[in-house]
Structures are given as C-alpha cells and as structure tokens.
C-alpha cells in the first residue's frame, strides 16, 4: 500500500508541476489543483497508513489511527477549495480583460512592468 500511495503522490505532483509551468491559465489552475491533491494525500499519509482503526478513544478499540493529520487535511482541503475558486475567477477576469488566456496576458514577448 505504501508503494502505491507514494507512486500516486509522486505522479500527481509531477503532473501538477508540469501543468503549473504551462503558458495558459486553465492548465495552470488544473496544475494547482493536482498539486493540492498530492499535498493532501501526503499530509494524510504522514499520520501513517492504518485501516479500520478508530481516530478517537473508544472502549475496547484494538488500536488507533492518528486523528491530527485528518484535521490538517480537512483544513488544507477547505483552504485549497477556496483558493481554487478564487484563482478560477481571476483567470476568467484576466481572460475577459486581457483578451486571451496566456498567463502574461499576451503571446508576444513584452515588458511586464
């Protein structure tokens, strides 16, 4: 299970970084989402991988899983969700105001500042 999870996290990160480096806003947004999925899985795995264990104290439980990474992931998901929504709106605004979806607002090399 560890090898599979590591592979998935690695693949998601690699795809995320590749898309993040693209020149159009939509792949960049997708790349950020993939990267945040990879990060969430990674955080989750940092509490060690256990199956079928209780996160809070239960009478007669055989063992426990670490509840803290789950809380961290939940926070990270909420924040990541809000940020993705924001960046999509911003990308749409940039598309409307700049007339194209290039991250620099133009396909021509031009001075930005």
């Amino acid at each position: 299970m560890e090898a599979l999870l590591s592979l998935i996290i690695g693949l998601l990160t690699a795809c995320g970084i590749y898309l993040l480096l693209r020149a159009r806003t939509f792949p960049v947004v997708l790349g950020l989402s993939l990267l945040s999925y990879a990060v969430n899985l990674f955080l989750f795995a940092m509490g060690r991988l256990t199956i079928g264990r209780a996160p809070i104290i239960t009478p007669g439980a055989a063992g426990y899983t670490d509840p803290l990474p789950q809380a961290l992931v939940l926070t990270a998901i909420v924040i990541g969700f809000a940020m993705t929504a924001f960046v999509i709106m911003l990308a749409l605004k940039a598309r409307a105001e700049l007339g194209n979806d290039h991250v620099d607002g133009t396909h021509e090399p031009e001075k930005i500042i």
Partner: peptide
C-alpha cells in the same frame, strides 16, 4: 493589476503547497 495579480496568486499558491509538504514532513 489583473495580470500582476494572476502571477502573484499562482506563485503564492505554489508556495502554500510547499509549506504544507514541509509541515507534513515535520509532523511525520
């Protein structure tokens, strides 16, 4: 403002992902 804002937002989101990875390693 929109163009500069897009760069600022994307680079900071990438930074946040790195922050979480670092925090995850510390916790792990």
């Amino acid at each position: 403002r929109t163009r500069a804002g897009l760069h600022y937002v994307v680079i900071n989101l990438a930074g946040s992902a790195l922050f979480l990875i670092a925090a995850g390693i510390f916790y792990g």
